[in-house]
Computed example of a mutant assay.
Amino acid sequence: MNPLMRRFLFQTSLLTFAFFVLGYLFYFLLFPNWYIRFLPIALIFLFLVTNLVHYYLLRIAGKSMAKFTARFMGMSFIKMFIYLVFAISFAFFHRDQAKVFLINFLVIYFAFSIVEVCEIARVVKQKSN
């Protein structure tokens, strides 16, 4: 496995574990009435999609930096569309829990996006030097 992918997988695994621990503390100890059984599934979904997209982007960066920007933008659009469909579907079918779910989903999404953008910037910087 590519060392850059291994590093990213480690970072996202730590982030996922941290969200599981924080979710447990927040929802089981502080606010048990707000817990949604679907939140761990959403976290795993974000983890998997983020890692698959990152793996694809690393493969592109290894081949051609000229094509990287266009494919990065395309994959970002596709990923965001998938996330949007996922979040809206849940909110549509579980309207009573939509607010809590969407807030959690956005927090997790932003955390994974920050890690991903930092790592992609690092890869691009390495490849351009």
Rank of each mutant, 00 (worst) to 15 (best):
A42Y: 05
F8C: 02
F101L: 06
V115P: 03
L39S: 11
H54T: 03
I88R: 03
V124R: 11
F45P: 02
E116I: 07
N104V: 02
F90A: 04
F38M: 01
V21F: 02
Q126I: 14
F47S: 03
T69L: 09
R95V: 14
G62F: 00
W34S: 15
A70R: 10
F20A: 14
F17C: 10
L84R: 00
A61H: 03
I41C: 03
K99P: 01
F81W: 04
F86P: 00
A70T: 14
R6M: 02
C118I: 09
E119T: 14
Y109R: 06
K63I: 07
K99E: 11
V123E: 05
K79V: 02
I114Y: 13
F92T: 10
F10Q: 13
K67T: 10
V100S: 11
V49Y: 07
L106G: 14
R37T: 13
N2S: 15
L48D: 01
Y24F: 15
F20T: 09
F81N: 08
L57F: 04
L48V: 12
Y55G: 11
K99C: 10
Q97C: 05
L14E: 08
A111W: 02
L58A: 08
F31T: 14
K99D: 12
I78P: 02
L84T: 14
L25A: 09
A18V: 08
A70M: 13
N2M: 01
G23V: 06
A42S: 03
D96V: 15
L22W: 05
A111G: 12
M73P: 02
L15R: 07
D96C: 14
L9K: 10
N129Y: 13
T69A: 03
C118P: 00
S113L: 12
Y27F: 11
V49H: 06
M1D: 14
I44C: 01
F72T: 06
M1E: 06
L106C: 11
K63T: 07
V124I: 15
L29N: 09
V21Q: 00
L106E: 01
Q97N: 13
Y56F: 13
I36S: 04
F90G: 01
L4Q: 09
F17L: 14
R37K: 09
R7D: 09
F47G: 00
L58Y: 07
F17S: 08
S113G: 14
L57C: 08
S13I: 07
V117I: 15
W34V: 12
F81Y: 13
F19L: 07
H94E: 05
T50Y: 08
H54Q: 13
N51L: 03
N51P: 04
D96K: 12
S128G: 12
A91M: 02
F17Q: 04
V49E: 02
L84C: 13
K127M: 06
L15N: 00
Y109K: 04
L106R: 05
F38R: 05
